[in-house]
Design a protein around this nucleic acid. Structure first.
Length: 273
DNA sequence: TGAAATGTTAACGA
DNA sequence: ATCGTTAACATTTC
């Protein structure tokens, strides 16, 4: 479930938890987490993962950047990209957490990538490559470079469904399945609407909802531990996602679900048109 | 027990 | 060319 808000939280956590203390050691529990490029495949691991991450020892964090769902840590002489994949999150712990893949240890503590499904990764890069690699192949950041209605019109094109286009990182970077569902509900737009059929007023409704929704989730999550909706015991915090059959909070119609491009969508047939 | 889940991307069909 | 779908990746939960 990590989307832009979770990546932004990870960015802040790295900055807060590591500060400017030099890396003392890197605890590599799952060597396949170190990849040659941003990839969800553990088989894309580098040849000498421990050697790669050992190059970070002695280096303090200079800054932590984000574009879409990608995070980049700048050290003076190294760069380290981070992607949370489908189930990744950061945890601060001195013991190896369950599903802990790699820990960056400083005198201020150890930050772990905890990732049950192993799609998350670290990618060592040259520091000069951090910014370009973070944005490579991606559209503008959906939060920091929010588009107006006119730019959305230019980016949301063709016959594809608006929901599928919103999840395309090359269109806008950072929106995943859940946020696409929530954004379209807030904007009152049927997720099946073809991009070319979006009206001016729909685009004007959509444009401000995108950054507003993402910013609200960031604000809500920037406290304590992140609890993902898929984790046991967690209450579904979303308005329509995962709520098939419940009454729409806006008009009372039953929420419906459908599949688009292999992903589950939820929408209100009463007020998303 | 099998289906579904999250993100990404390659591969394929229309 | 472009669009949409499916499968694959790894693993767990319902």
């Amino acid at each position: 479930m990590p989307e832009l808000p979770e990546a932004e939280i990870a960015r802040r956590q790295l900055a807060r938890w590591l500060g400017d203390a030099p890396v003392r050691r890197v605890r590599l529990e799952d060597p396949a987490v170190v990849r040659t490029h941003l990839s969800s495949r553990p088989s894309d691991g580098v040849g000498d993962p421990q050697g790669e991450v050992d190059a970070l020892v002695g280096q303090p964090v200079v800054e932590v950047l984000r574009h879409g769902k990608r995070v980049g840590i700048r050290f003076p002489e190294r760069g380290l990209l981070v992607h949370l994949g489908m189930s990744g999150k950061l945890v601060r712990s001195e013991e190896v957490p369950r599903y802990g893949r790699m820990g960056l240890e400083t005198e201020r503590g150890t930050v772990w990538l905890v990732d049950r499904r192993r799609f998350g990764c670290f990618v060592p890069v040259e520091p000069a490559q951090i910014r370009s690699t973070l944005a490579e192949g991606h559209g503008p950041d959906a939060l920091d470079e929010a588009c107006g209605a006119a730019e959305l019109r230019a980016r949301l094109t063709g016959r594809r469904a608006v929901k599928v286009a919103l999840m395309d990182q090359a269109v806008l970077a950072g929106i995943g399945n859940i946020q696409a569902v929530e954004i379209l509900f807030r904007a009152g737009i049927d997720p099946r609407t073809r991009c070319a059929d979006l009206t001016e007023s729909q685009l004007e409704a959509l444009a401000p909802v995108i950054p507003a929704q993402l910013q609200e989730v960031v604000d809500a999550e920037d406290v304590g531990e992140i609890v993902y909706v898929t984790e046991r015991g967690g209450e579904n915090p979303f308005v329509v996602y995962g709520r098939e059959g419940s009454a729409c909070p806006r008009c009372g119609t039953a929420i419906e679900s459908l599949r688009q491009s292999g992903r589950s969508s939820f929408f209100c047939p009463g007020c998303q048109t």
